[in-house]
């Protein structure tokens, strides 16, 4: 098959990556925006989401859809509670000092990863998708002077992948609604703007922090539950989402949700396309260098307004 159909395919795969990445990165961005701390353990919360999804589905059994629906609820909830507990026991005690928080969350990263290795083991395990119809993509070519529809042409996508894109979009819309329209979102934004003033107005800043940290981790876990039927659950799977979320959050402008979203789509699509046509390692080298140079020469991000 020629270049065109492959590009369509790469774009679709990229869109799935972008959807999951957007969820993960928005979680990281939310934590940075409100709390002004960088959570290096974010990738491990993603990994825990996937591992818990495997655990819940294999515990429940029955039809795949039932277990998967349970995992969609249970995994983000448990991960969110764990993150909130970590916030209250560790981050609160070091007073959210930016540099010490990074060191502490590096420690947290190894604790979560290695405890998973000890309990869940080193195997990659699959989770059955709730539905998985193969969909062939139509393609139009020009032959003998008139357009011809080629369908099916061998390659295609699955209904589940399209559902992942839809679900991610729905969740992101929900996050946006909560942040802009609800009372709790108002409290979060007030804390983000001026922590001391928020405290003076009687906003329970410490509880808001725990909530935001838990919510950020839960978003990562949710993204992982969505992707785990496509990839697999493995204890080292947190590295790539962490790196990519970092890239997205920095390019989008630290703490800016719309910028994060735009950057996630950009990075997800280009990562998918570059990885299909070139080497995935090369794609990552370029992306990491881009991030470093953006931080050096344009610290407010490509779309953001505010410096880090």
């Amino acid at each position: 098959m020629e270049f065109g159909p492959h590009l369509v395919l790469a774009t679709l795969e990229g869109a799935v990556t972008a959807a999951v990445l957007a969820l993960t990165a928005v979680g990281l961005s939310l934590v940075f925006g409100v709390m002004r701390v960088v959570n290096v353990a974010h990738g491990e919360f993603f990994m825990l989401g996937a591992v818990l999804a495997w655990w819940v589905t294999s515990l429940i059994g029955g039809p795949p859809a039932l277990g998967f629906a349970a995992a969609l609820v249970v995994a983000p909830l448990l991960v969110g509670l764990l993150a909130a507990a970590a916030d209250m026991t560790v981050l609160k005690r070091i007073d959210y000092d930016p540099e010490r928080t990074i060191v502490a969350t590096i420690g947290l990263l190894y604790i979560l990863q290695q405890v998973t290795l000890m309990t869940y083991g080193a195997d990659a395990r699959p989770v059955e998708p709730p539905f998985n119809t193969r969909l062939a993509i139509p393609w139009v070519t020009f032959a003998e002077g008139r357009p011809q529809l080629i369908w099916p042409w061998g390659l295609g996508t699955t209904s589940y992948k399209l559902a992942v894109i839809g679900a991610a979009a729905a969740v992101l819309a929900g996050v946006w609604l909560v942040m802009t329209r609800s009372r709790i979102g108002l409290l979060m934004r007030a804390t983000q703007l001026d922590r001391d003033m928020a405290l003076a107005f009687g906003i329970p800043v410490e509880r808001i922090y725990a909530l935001v940290f838990g919510l950020g981790a839960a978003l990562a876990a949710l993204a992982a539950v969505l992707i785990v039927p496509i990839s697999q659950a493995h204890y080292l799977m947190g590295g790539d989402p962490l790196l990519l979320s970092f890239i997205v959050v920095i390019i989008g402008g630290l703490g800016s949700l719309p910028g994060t979203l735009v950057a996630a789509i950009l990075i997800g699509l280009s990562d998918g396309i570059i990885s299909v046509f070139f080497s995935p390692t090369l794609a990552k080298i370029l992306a990491t260098l881009l991030v470093a140079l953006v931080l050096v020469f344009r610290p407010q991000g490509l779309f953001g307004l505010r410096a880090a």
């Binding site: 960088v38 540099e99 970092f246 991030v291 470093a292 931080l295 050096v296 880090a308």
Partner: peptide
């Protein structure tokens, strides 16, 4: 390059350069 930034940005820039070197 990295000393043009400070604090958290310095940490991330050094991390990213090292990661690019590893890759």
């Amino acid at each position: 390059l990295a000393l043009r930034t400070a604090g958290v940005a310095f940490m991330i820039v050094t991390l990213m350069f090292a990661q690019a070197g590893y890759l």
